[in-house]
Amino acid sequence: MSRLLGVVALCAALSACTSTVSTPRPVPATTRQALPDLDTVDPCSLLGASDFKKPFTRQPERLTTLLSCTWATEDEAVWLSVEQESLEQGKVRVRDGSELTVEGRKAWWGVTTERVKDSQEFSVGIIVIELEVDSVLVLRALRTPPSYSVGMAARERSVKVLQRLAP
């Protein structure tokens, strides 16, 4: 009987050692700079030739949606737009994405490889950055031949865009 009490006491002592006190992790503080009125921004001025490794194959082209533009080089195309949706809604644009913070803003990003009809493969890097509760900046970069460095290029360009948008 005393052996049994000894085993019970040992088990109780060991279980006390393994219990953990759960403390909530602090949420990182984000500092957001106010954005200018987006109606006054020329979207094609947010990226320039110096932001690309190769020269443009055509001039940047402003698209019809608010703050949207496309750039193209020999092996890469980049689209930028502001969409009226939440970050949660914008996440559907990115397969197997992951969370990060860009210039103090919540973001979601990922890289995939896609194939077009003529069997040409390319890599797609997409980053969706929360500008406001109901608007996101979407930057999509395509690179041929496929290269996962397109994801880093999309992230670096998104930082430049946010810095150039800062007042």
Rank of each mutant, 00 (worst) to 15 (best):
M1D: 11
S2G: 14
L4V: 13
V8Q: 03
L10R: 05
A12T: 11
A16S: 09
A16M: 09
C17H: 11
T18V: 13
T20C: 09
V21H: 12
S22L: 15
R25G: 12
T31Y: 12
T31Q: 11
R32T: 13
Q33L: 14
A34L: 10
A34R: 11
A34I: 07
L35G: 03
P36D: 07
D37N: 15
D37C: 02
D39C: 02
T40I: 07
T40Q: 15
T40F: 06
D42C: 04
D42N: 13
D42G: 06
D42W: 06
D42I: 07
P43F: 01
P43G: 02
S45Y: 06
L47Q: 02
L47S: 04
A49E: 15
A49S: 08
A49V: 12
F52I: 02
K54N: 12
Q59T: 13
P60Y: 05
E61V: 13
E61S: 10
T64A: 12
T64W: 08
T64S: 14
T65M: 10
L66G: 08
L67A: 05
L67T: 07
S68Q: 01
C69E: 07
T70V: 10
T70L: 11
W71T: 01
A72V: 03
T73R: 00
T73A: 04
E74R: 09
D75A: 07
D75G: 10
D75R: 13
A77C: 06
A77Y: 11
W79M: 12
W79I: 13
W79G: 10
L80M: 11
S81N: 11
V82Q: 00
E85V: 13
E85L: 11
E85A: 13
E88A: 14
K91C: 00
V92N: 11
V94C: 00
V94I: 02
V94P: 00
R95C: 00
D96G: 10
S98V: 08
G104R: 01
G104H: 05
K106L: 10
K106A: 13
T112M: 00
S119V: 14
S119N: 13
Q120D: 10
Q120H: 09
S123L: 00
S123Q: 00
V124L: 06
V128M: 01
E130Q: 14
L131C: 02
L131E: 03
E132V: 06
V133F: 13
V133A: 15
D134H: 14
S135P: 01
S135T: 14
V138H: 04
L139C: 02
A141N: 07
A141W: 02
A141Q: 11
P145Y: 02
Y148K: 14
M152K: 15
M152W: 10
A153Q: 15
A154C: 06
A154W: 04
A154R: 06
R155D: 06
E156V: 09
R157W: 03
Q163E: 14
L165P: 04
L165N: 05
L165D: 04
A166P: 06
A166M: 09
A166L: 05
P167I: 07
